[in-house]
Deep mutational scan, measured.
Amino acid sequence: NQASVVANQLIPINTALTLAMMRSEVVTPVGIPAEDIPRLVSMQVNRAVPLGTTLMPDMVKGYA
């Protein structure tokens, strides 16, 4: 099963992502692949992401 990127904390809108904000977890539906975590660092979210939410490509500016 593919691990996805999950929010490790509440991430406010327009926040630049850091490693501490993300974790890898096997979830359904599948979100951004966990191997993309290094690429996500310093990218901004375009909405508030609650703790435990799977990051989807449309939630991260410049990812999709």
Results as ranks from 00 to 15, higher is better:
Asn1Glu: 15
Asn1Arg: 06
Asn1Tyr: 04
Ala3Ile: 07
Ala3Cys: 03
Ala3Pro: 15
Ala3Met: 06
Ala3His: 12
Ser4Cys: 04
Ser4Leu: 01
Ser4Glu: 00
Ser4Pro: 01
Ser4Ile: 02
Ser4Lys: 01
Val5Trp: 02
Val5Met: 02
Val6Glu: 02
Val6Pro: 00
Val6Gly: 00
Val6Phe: 02
Val6Ile: 13
Val6Arg: 04
Ala7Glu: 00
Ala7Asp: 01
Ala7Lys: 01
Ala7Asn: 01
Asn8Gln: 08
Asn8His: 06
Gln9Pro: 01
Gln9Lys: 10
Leu10Tyr: 12
Leu10Trp: 15
Leu10Glu: 13
Ile11Cys: 02
Ile11Gln: 00
Ile11His: 00
Ile11Lys: 00
Ile11Thr: 02
Pro12Thr: 06
Ile13His: 14
Ile13Met: 10
Ile13Gly: 12
Asn14Ser: 04
Asn14Trp: 12
Asn14Lys: 04
Asn14Thr: 05
Asn14Gln: 06
Thr15Val: 15
Thr15Arg: 06
Thr15Met: 09
Thr15Cys: 04
Thr15Asp: 04
Ala16Asp: 05
Ala16Leu: 12
Ala16Tyr: 07
Leu17Phe: 03
Leu17Thr: 00
Leu17Met: 06
Leu17Lys: 00
Leu17Gly: 01
Thr18Arg: 09
Thr18Trp: 03
Thr18Leu: 12
Thr18Asp: 07
Thr18Met: 11
Leu19Glu: 06
Leu19Cys: 04
Leu19Asp: 12
Leu19Tyr: 15
Leu19Phe: 13
Leu19Lys: 12
Ala20Pro: 05
Ala20Tyr: 14
Ala20Thr: 13
Ala20Ser: 14
Ala20Leu: 12
Ala20Val: 10
Ala20Met: 09
Met21His: 05
Met21Cys: 03
Met21Ala: 05
Met21Glu: 02
Met21Trp: 03
Met22Cys: 03
Met22Ala: 00
Met22Asp: 01
Met22Trp: 02
Met22Lys: 01
Arg23Ser: 11
Arg23Ile: 06
Arg23Cys: 03
Arg23Tyr: 07
Arg23Gln: 10
Arg23His: 06
Arg23Asp: 14
Ser24Thr: 12
Ser24Glu: 13
Ser24Met: 10
Ser24Phe: 11
Ser24Gln: 07
Ser24Asp: 11
Glu25Phe: 10
Glu25Ser: 10
Glu25His: 11
Glu25Tyr: 13
Glu25Asn: 07
Glu25Arg: 05
Val26Asp: 08
Val26Trp: 06
Val26Gly: 06
Val26His: 11
Val27His: 04
Val27Cys: 03
Val27Ala: 05
Val27Gly: 04
Val27Ile: 11
Val27Met: 11
Val27Lys: 13
Thr28Ser: 13
Thr28Arg: 06
Thr28Tyr: 12
Thr28Ala: 13
Thr28Val: 15
Thr28Asn: 14
Thr28Gly: 08
Thr28Pro: 02
Pro29Val: 07
Pro29Gln: 05
Pro29Asp: 06
Pro29Cys: 04
Pro29Phe: 05
Pro29Met: 06
Val30Ile: 12
Val30Trp: 09
Val30Ala: 15
Val30Leu: 10
Val30Cys: 03
Val30Gln: 12
Gly31Cys: 03
Gly31Tyr: 02
Ile32Tyr: 02
Ile32Lys: 00
Ile32Ala: 02
Pro33Ala: 05
Pro33Tyr: 14
Pro33Gly: 12
Pro33Phe: 07
Pro33Ile: 06
Ala34Thr: 08
Ala34Glu: 15
Ala34Asp: 15
Ala34Lys: 05
Ala34Tyr: 12
Ala34Arg: 05
Ala34His: 10
Glu35Thr: 15
Glu35Pro: 07
Glu35Gln: 11
Glu35Gly: 13
Asp36Pro: 00
Asp36Ala: 10
Asp36Arg: 10
Asp36Asn: 14
Asp36Glu: 14
Ile37Asn: 02
Ile37His: 03
Pro38Phe: 12
Pro38Tyr: 09
Pro38Ile: 15
Pro38Leu: 15
Pro38Gly: 15
Pro38Asn: 15
Arg39Cys: 03
Arg39Asp: 05
Arg39Met: 15
Leu40His: 00
Leu40Pro: 00
Val41Leu: 15
Val41Thr: 10
Val41Gln: 07
Val41Phe: 06
Val41Lys: 07
Val41Cys: 03
Val41Arg: 09
Ser42Thr: 12
Ser42Ala: 06
Met43Val: 05
Met43Phe: 10
Met43Gln: 05
Met43Gly: 04
Met43Ser: 07
Met43Ala: 05
Met43Trp: 09
Gln44Tyr: 14
Gln44Pro: 08
Gln44Met: 13
Gln44Leu: 10
Gln44Asp: 06
Gln44Lys: 09
Gln44Phe: 13
Val45Asn: 03
Val45Pro: 03
Val45Lys: 00
Val45Ser: 06
Val45Ala: 06
Val45Glu: 01
Val45Thr: 07
Asn46Tyr: 07
Asn46His: 09
Asn46Ile: 13
Asn46Trp: 08
Asn46Arg: 13
Asn46Ser: 14
Asn46Gly: 14
Arg47Tyr: 14
Arg47Ile: 14
Arg47Val: 09
Arg47His: 05
Ala48Glu: 14
Ala48Cys: 03
Ala48Asp: 09
Ala48Ile: 09
Ala48Lys: 13
Ala48Leu: 12
Ala48Gln: 13
Ala48Pro: 05
Ala48Met: 13
Ala48His: 12
Ala48Gly: 15
Ala48Thr: 13
Val49Pro: 01
Val49Ile: 12
Val49Arg: 04
Val49Met: 12
Val49Gln: 02
Val49Tyr: 02
Pro50Leu: 11
Pro50His: 08
Pro50Trp: 10
Pro50Thr: 05
Leu51Gln: 14
Leu51Glu: 10
Leu51Asp: 05
Gly52Asn: 10
Gly52Leu: 04
Gly52Lys: 04
Gly52Asp: 09
Gly52Ile: 01
Thr53Ala: 12
Thr53Met: 12
Thr53Trp: 14
Thr54Ile: 07
Thr54His: 03
Thr54Trp: 02
Thr54Tyr: 02
Thr54Val: 11
Thr54Gly: 03
Leu55Thr: 00
Leu55Arg: 00
Leu55Val: 06
Met56Trp: 07
Met56Gln: 15
Met56Gly: 06
Met56Val: 10
Met56Thr: 12
Pro57Asp: 09
Pro57Trp: 13
Pro57Thr: 10
Pro57Gln: 08
Pro57Gly: 12
Pro57Tyr: 11
Asp58Phe: 11
Asp58Cys: 03
Asp58Arg: 06
Asp58Pro: 14
Asp58Glu: 10
Asp58Tyr: 06
Met59Asp: 10
Met59Asn: 05
Val60Trp: 02
Val60Arg: 00
Val60Pro: 02
Val60Leu: 08
Lys61Leu: 10
Lys61Gln: 13
Lys61Ile: 11
Lys61Val: 08
Gly62Phe: 09
Gly62Arg: 08
Gly62Val: 04
Gly62Glu: 13
Gly62Cys: 03
Gly62Met: 07
Tyr63Phe: 12
Tyr63Arg: 02
Tyr63Ile: 05
Tyr63Ser: 06
Tyr63Thr: 05
Ala64Val: 12
Ala64Cys: 04
